[in-house]
C-alpha cells in the first residue's frame, strides 16, 4: 500500500547537445512508469508551423488477450487499425463519449480502421475477455508521445516554447500543465497513482480465466 500510495516523481529534461530532442523519464516509486502520455502544444508560431502532419494511421494490436500498447496517444482525426494477432476472436468496444464503437475482430483478418476524430479519452474493452482494458488518448496537441516500459519518452521538436500536458490512466490526479522552453532546464512532475487499478492483463492463473457467469 505504502508503495502504491507514494508519490510518483516524474523527471523530464532536455539534452543540450541536441536541442531538437525533448526526452523524459517517468517513474513510480523508483520504478519506471510506462504509458505516461506527454502532449506538447507549441506556443510559438514558428514551432507550430513545423508541427508534423496528421499521422496516416496507427495500430493497436490484440496480443495474448491484451491491448498492445495499453495506452495509445493519437492526434484527432487519426484512423486506428485494430489487428488481431491472437488465434481467437476479440470483440472490441468503447462506451466513451469521445468515440463509441464496436468492432469484431477475427483472427488474422485485418478490419477497417476506426477514425478517432474528437479529442478525449477512449476506454476500450473486449466483450469476450472482460479483463481486457486499453486506452486511446485522442488530442489536438502538436506533438504526442508516451513513455515505454523503461519509463522513457522522447519527442523531436523545434526549439521554442511548449505547453506540456501529462496523462496517465491510473493517476489519482493528473499533474498540472507546464510551460517549457526547448532547450530547457531539468523539470520534474509528480503525481500519485490510484491505490488499485486494472492492468488490462489476463488473470495470472488459468483458474480465474476458466469460469465466466457474466457476473
Amino acid at each position: 500500500m505504502a508503495s502504491r500510495l507514494s508519490t510518483v516523481f516524474l523527471m523530464a529534461w532536455t539534452t543540450f547537445a541536441d536541442a531538437t530532442e525533448l526526452r523524459g523519464l517517468a517513474e513510480a516509486s523508483g520504478r519506471p512508469l510506462a504509458n505516461l502520455v506527454v502532449a506538447l502544444e507549441a506556443l510559438d508560431q514558428p514551432a507550430r508551423a513545423k508541427a508534423p502532419p496528421q499521422s496516416a494511421a496507427m495500430l493497436l494490436d490484440q496480443k495474448s488477450r491484451e491491448f498492445v500498447p495499453h495506452v495509445l496517444a493519437v492526434r484527432s482525426g487519426t484512423p486506428v487499425f485494430f489487428p488481431n494477432s491472437d488465434a481467437i476472436k476479440h470483440h472490441v468496444y468503447s462506451f466513451s463519449t469521445a468515440k463509441r464503437f464496436e468492432i469484431k475482430l477475427y483472427s488474422g483478418v485485418p478490419p477497417e480502421p476506426v477514425l478517432f476524430d474528437k479529442p478525449g479519452i477512449v476506454a476500450l474493452g473486449c466483450n469476450i475477455h472482460d479483463w481486457m482494458l486499453g486506452y486511446i488518448y485522442v488530442s489536438d496537441a502538436d506533438y504526442l508521445g508516451a513513455s515505454d516500459n523503461q519509463g522513457r519518452w522522447s519527442l523531436d521538436v523545434p526549439s521554442g516554447r511548449y505547453r506540456l500536458t501529462f496523462w496517465h490512466p491510473y493517476a489519482a490526479e493528473q499533474p498540472a500543465q507546464q510551460v517549457v522552453t526547448v532547450p530547457t532546464t531539468e523539470l520534474s512532475v509528480s503525481l500519485k497513482l490510484k491505490a488499485q487499478f486494472q492492468t488490462g492483463k489476463p488473470p495470472a492463473s488459468l483458474q480465474i480465466q476458466g469460469y465466466g457467469d457474466g457476473f
Binding site: 491472437d86 488465434a87 481467437i88 476472436k89 477475427y106 483472427s107 488474422g108 469460469y211
Partner: peptide, 13 residues
Amino acid sequence: LCDEGQFPEFTWH
C-alpha cells in the same frame, strides 16, 4: 484455443 475464423469457436477449460 483455436480459431478457424468462423463460428462456432470452441474453448476448453
